[in-house]
C-alpha cells in the first residue's frame, strides 16, 4: 500500500505548491506597461511610414501582433537590437525592402521656390511645417523628424532633405574625423586657410 501513500503525498504536495503559486501570481503580480507602449517607446517616432504602417504607433501594434521587427530604417540596427531584447526575438538585419539606415536628416524648404500650396503641411506627420495658402512655408527644424514624407507631395520639388549639421555641443568626440591641416609652407597657410576647414 506504500505506493498509494506515495501518490497521495505527492498529490498533496502538488496541490499545496499549486495553491502557493496561484496565490503568488495574484498577490505579486507586476503591472507592466502594455507591450505596445514599450515597443512604441523604443521606436524612433519618425512617423515616416517606411515600415508600411501609418506611423510608429501602428507599427508598434503590428509588432505586438507578430510582425517583423526589422522594418524600421530610421531606428536602424540599434532599434532592432533593443526590440529583439524586449521581445525575446532574434535580432535580424534591417529589411532592405523598407529602406536603408541613413544619417539623420532635416527637411529644408527652398523658400523662394515655394508656391504656398500647403500640400507638404498636410503631409507632415508631426505638424512641423508652418505656412498658409499662397504664403511661403517653412520647416520648424527642431520638430522635423526627417521622415521624408513632405518631399513627394511638393509640386515644385522645393524641399531638400539635408543631413543634420553637427553642432559643437552635440559633438560626440570622434577625434578621427577632425580634418587636419597639412602645412607645407607658411605662405600657403595664411592664403588657403584663412577660414580654416569649414
Amino acid at each position: 500500500m506504500s505506493w498509494v501513500l506515495g501518490i497521495i503525498a505527492l498529490s498533496v504536495l502538488a496541490l499545496v505548491a499549486g495553491l502557493i503559486l496561484g496565490f503568488a501570481a495574484i498577490r505579486f503580480r507586476v503591472e507592466g506597461d502594455p507591450i505596445v507602449e514599450q515597443i512604441d517607446q523604443i521606436l524612433p517616432q519618425t512617423q515616416c511610414g517606411q515600415c508600411g504602417y501609418p506611423g510608429c504607433r501602428p507599427y508598434a501594434q503590428a509588432i505586438a501582433d507578430g510582425d517583423e521587427i526589422n522594418k524600421c530604417p530610421p531606428g536602424g540596427q540599434a532599434t532592432i537590437d533593443r526590440l529583439a531584447d524586449l521581445l525575446g526575438r532574434e535580432a535580424k538585419p534591417l529589411d532592405a525592402a523598407h529602406g536603408a539606415e541613413d544619417v539623420k536628416k532635416v527637411a529644408v524648404i527652398r523658400e523662394d521656390e515655394c508656391i504656398g500650396c500647403t500640400k507638404c503641411i498636410q503631409a507632415c506627420p508631426v505638424d512641423a511645417i508652418i505656412g498658409a495658402t499662397r504664403q511661403m512655408h517653412t520647416v520648424i527644424a527642431d520638430e522635423c523628424t526627417g521622415c521624408d514624407l513632405c518631399v513627394e507631395p511638393c509640386p515644385v520639388d522645393c524641399i531638400d532633405m539635408l543631413p543634420l549639421p553637427t553642432k559643437p555641443e552635440r559633438w560626440t568626440w570622434n577625434l578621427e574625423q577632425i580634418p587636419v591641416q597639412n602645412i607645407t609652407d607658411a605662405a600657403a597657410t595664411t592664403e588657403t586657410s584663412e577660414r580654416g576647414p569649414a
Binding site: Q47, G55, R57, V126, W173
Partner: peptide, 29 residues
C-alpha cells in the same frame, strides 16, 4: 568616458525628441 558621455547625452536628446514627435503625431491624429 567622453565618448560614452556624449553617446548617453545623444540618446537622452533623441529620446526626448522622439517623445515630442510622438506627442505631436498623436495630437495631429
Amino acid at each position: 568616458y567622453r565618448q560614452a558621455k556624449a553617446e548617453m547625452r545623444e540618446q537622452a536628446i533623441e529620446h526626448h525628441k522622439a517623445e515630442i514627435a510622438r506627442q505631436r503625431f498623436e495630437a495631429r491624429q
